[in-house]
Design a binder for these strands. Structure first.
Lengths: 113, 113
DNA sequence: TGAACATATGAACAAATATTCATATGTTTT
DNA sequence: AAAACATATGAATATTTGTTCATATGTTCA
């Protein structure tokens, strides 16, 4: 959208060629967006300690059941967490080890930087 | 905010004790939030190939100079990128290796999953 | 079967945010 | 010093999003 600088055309083409596809970049942004909320990060940090039922999460986070459930739904749609039913309660846990890895990459960036 | 289940009190306390501080979690969410936008991810992916001036980014992303500059400002405030001036142009680059690592952790999650 | 419990979900509202437009700042060149 | 160029930034707008409230779904227990 700016005027193309002929002497830059080469590096632009090369960079474009090396970058991940637009589809991958879009999906990656969507994944990070899900991590980018305090409530959801707190939920993920709690679940990284082990599975937990919804009411435990509500107590732990000191938030309403509805707010927690809505965010659990967002996390589940993005496949960051999974759940299982045990009687009346539903237990949530991280979907796979990758999720904890991403979470702690971010946390350690904050703690170190 | 839900009714406290006495038999869960123990696991709640233990999880709370093991979790990172609220401050760290809040900052971590803020960092991921900055990664959680398609335009910014595209900028970061481009800069992971090497430093680049603003007009190159505009051409590469096919976006207006203003929109790109606004997002560069967000990325810089969050210390994900840095810049240097060379004559009329300003070159941006990733702030440190950590940023590329976080980016590619997310990208590989998308590509593998 | 009905009551109590645990969780999910739709609608509404407030707050956050990405882009556009217009313009300002800072640099180089003539 | 003025003009041209590269980038930054404030205001306005449209969209997205997180929480609350009210209610629905599904399970267990009496």
């Amino acid at each position: 959208m700016a005027e193309i600088h002929p002497e830059h055309a080469h590096i632009i083409e090369q960079t474009k060629a090396n970058m991940p596809s637009e589809e991958v970049l879009e999906k990656t942004a969507e994944v990070f967006k899900v991590f980018g909320d305090k409530t959801r990060i707190r939920i993920l940090a709690a679940l990284s300690e082990g599975e937990m039922c919804v009411c435990c999460l509500c107590d732990l986070l000191e938030m309403s059941q509805s707010a927690v459930s809505h965010q659990l739904s967002v996390l589940k749609s993005a496949r960051l967490i999974k759940n299982r039913r045990e009687g009346k309660q539903i237990y949530y846990s991280l979907d796979d080890a990758h999720i904890g890895a991403i979470l702690y990459t971010g946390i350690s960036h904050v703690e170190e930087g």
